[in-house]
Amino acid sequence: MSEELKSGSRLEKILRSGKFAVTGECGPPRGADPEVIHKKCSLLKDKADAFNITDNQTSVVRMSSISSAVIMMQQGLEPVMQMVCRDRNRIAIQSDILGGAALGIKNMLCLSGDHQKFGDHPQAKNVFDLDSIQLINTVKTMRDDGKFLSGEDIKGAPKLFIGAAENPFADPFEIRAPRLGKKVAAGVDFIQTQCIFNLSKFELWMKQVVDMGLHEKVFILGGVTPFKSFGMARYMANNVPGMDVPDELLQRMKNTPKEKQAEEGITIAVETIKKLQEIKGIAGVHIMAIEWEEKVGELADKAGLLPRPVL
């Protein structure tokens, strides 16, 4: 993979130097109090290389990802600003990309976004002027060609490390690797996958990815989410679209006494990370400990990922 830095972000440096990267996640608060982010940051600091700031995830209104990312930077952590196509047209998207870059954000994750039906404002009008693949290409055009979508020159191109998500477990399975190919063609630098519970299916997808040579063109971080409880595992299996939780994992959580389930969830996640490290083409892990930030450090530590490299 090329060693030329596009953004100079910490995450990019780690990946381009061939080190196994770790990213985490931080959901912004449902209010204007920055203290919530400060607290999460103190739990997450030094436990990963960079942290996704979600953008009104599940279509529930929260503090904006740009402002939360800036608050995170003030605490000395590196954010990955998520951006969804649901809420902004191309004018607002390009404007926010410029603003984010000007404020010092160096990583960005391009997403279509959950449908507003899932959130607290199902009455909202959605935008989807662009889709995630077109958004990737928009950022790349702005960064590498120094042009807006209109073709006009940008004075001061935004230097961003461009990420996207991919869900190997969604249907139809056979186009999931080709669809990653489209994201690569659009100019993505790194990919964070959906939470991996079904490792054999994931390996099958990765084999296709490697056969297509995509692992040499994009850094792939495997998504890992620890179960807090059997209830959460069951919820993810039954209620989250595109999530694949094998029965054997559900049974394992179910057969664990309630007070030990959280610990078992961490153990499963550690096992997953260790297996991911052995899969060809995997450049890192993305830990999504949903509203469980205090466990990211323990999980990373048990998986042998700490301390994080100092650059």
């Binding site: 959950d114 889709d131 995630s132 998500a165 869900n167 969604a170 249907d171 139809p172 679209p241 595109g242």
Partner: peptide, 9 residues
Amino acid sequence: LNGPCGGST
């Protein structure tokens, strides 16, 4: 225009 998204099941 470049689907499907990750929610197709």
